[in-house]
Computed example of a mutant assay.
Amino acid sequence: MNHRFSNTLIGLLNLLTLLASIPIIAAGLKMAKNRTTCESFLQTPLMVIGFIILVISLAGFIGACFNVAWALWVYLFVMLLLTATLLAFTIFGFVVISEGGGVQVSGRVYKEYRLQDYSPWLRKRVEDPHYWRTIRTCILGSNTCAKLASWTPLDYLQKDLTPVQSGCCKPPTSCNYGAATMLAQDPDCYRWNNMPNLLCYECNSCKAGVLEDVRSNWHKLSVLNVVMVILLICIYSIGCCAYKNAKRSETDYPYGENRMKRVEPRWDFYWRRWWRDRRDFLY
């Protein structure tokens, strides 16, 4: 690849990613000042990603524009690690989200969700009491269920619900609360409470609804990750060309190494020179 083109292109790409890292870091700092529990989940990952992009882009920009070989070497090394990590994370994500999905309820538009349908790794996250308390606080703070307070029974027949609303804001549709009911029911039917701060927040259906929401968002993120991996591989290839160009520029010769190496004289050089000097002196 042409010397100027590869260096200019890698410099431009890193300038764009450098500028893109600024709003990411700003968003993380803003979340740090916000007391909303939901946003605090993204605070640390956003700031870490922002700073990594900032450092990598800065190294790549300096190395490409000023032909600093060591900066480009650091850039390429970190880029390789970042690409490998992102690829592993993407594969893991597709494996985790391969299980799950809702069950259509007869006569209703919305679906209901069962915790046992999701991968063990995801179930372990929401079954942890400490982790679930944080999520529960997040749902309460978002007023997700408050939006359904004015719904009529007809609305539940005609309108759709989000996974969280379906699992956390109402009991399972199969529940029967008649006085004469003697049949065994879903355990979530007994966890339901009409109190606005209780509802079905301790139900397995609520945890399943949260996992379905996570699964949906993770699927979108995994598709984006595939695009990012391809883009990073392309940028890495251009960066390799820029690194080779930076190494060449250190020799002040655009087509490769052109410095003469030191030549050591043969063993008889000094003897012959001494004999010539003596002969000239005598004659």
Rank of each mutant, 00 (worst) to 15 (best):
W70R: 11
W70E: 03
W70V: 08
W70G: 01
W73F: 13
V74T: 07
V74Q: 04
L76E: 00
F77A: 15
V78C: 13
L80T: 06
L82D: 07
T83E: 10
A88N: 00
A88E: 02
A88D: 01
T90Y: 03
F92C: 03
V95K: 03
V96Y: 00
S98C: 09
S98Q: 05
G100R: 01
G101Q: 06
G101W: 08
R108Q: 09
V109C: 00
Y110I: 03
Y110V: 02
Y110L: 10
Y110R: 13
Y110Q: 09
E112A: 05
E112H: 06
R114K: 15
L115F: 07
Q116K: 13
D117K: 12
Y118C: 09
S119L: 01
S119G: 08
L122Q: 10
L122F: 12
K124G: 07
E127F: 09
D128R: 03
D128M: 04
P129N: 06
H130Y: 13
Y131Q: 12
W132Y: 02
T134L: 14
I135S: 00
T137D: 13
I139V: 05
I139Y: 00
I139K: 02
L140E: 02
L140R: 09
L140I: 08
G141Y: 08
N143E: 07
N143L: 14
T144Y: 04
C145S: 00
A146R: 06
K147M: 07
S150K: 11
W151P: 06
L154A: 15
Y156W: 12
L157I: 11
L157Q: 15
Q158V: 07
Q158H: 08
K159G: 03
D160C: 06
D160R: 05
D160M: 11
P163R: 00
V164Y: 04
V164P: 00
Q165E: 14
S166L: 13
S166M: 12
G167W: 04
G167P: 10
G167E: 04
C169G: 09
C169D: 07
K170L: 15
K170I: 12
P172Y: 05
S174R: 15
C175N: 09
C175R: 12
C175A: 13
M182Y: 06
L183G: 06
L183Y: 01
